[in-house]
Amino acid sequence: MPGRTRPIEKFAEAVAKCSAEASVYGKCIIADYNGVYKDKCLTEFMKLKDCYTAAAKRR
């Protein structure tokens, strides 16, 4: 669809700017991937989420 960016593309760009936070979060999860439970890595995820929301707003 020319001339129109899909919302998901904007989101993907914003997440791509937060590779450091995403990496920290990913490492936290795979440290013990047989014992993942809800909100196991909540603090790491919130940092990632803060980063991509900010990145999405900047543009």
Binding site: E21, A22, Y25, G26, K27, I29, I30, Y33, Y52
Partner: peptide, 10 residues
């Protein structure tokens, strides 16, 4: 967003 982080690390 979480998947992106995990996929890349794992």
């Amino acid at each position: 967003a979480a998947t992106e982080g995990i996929y890349r690390e794992l």
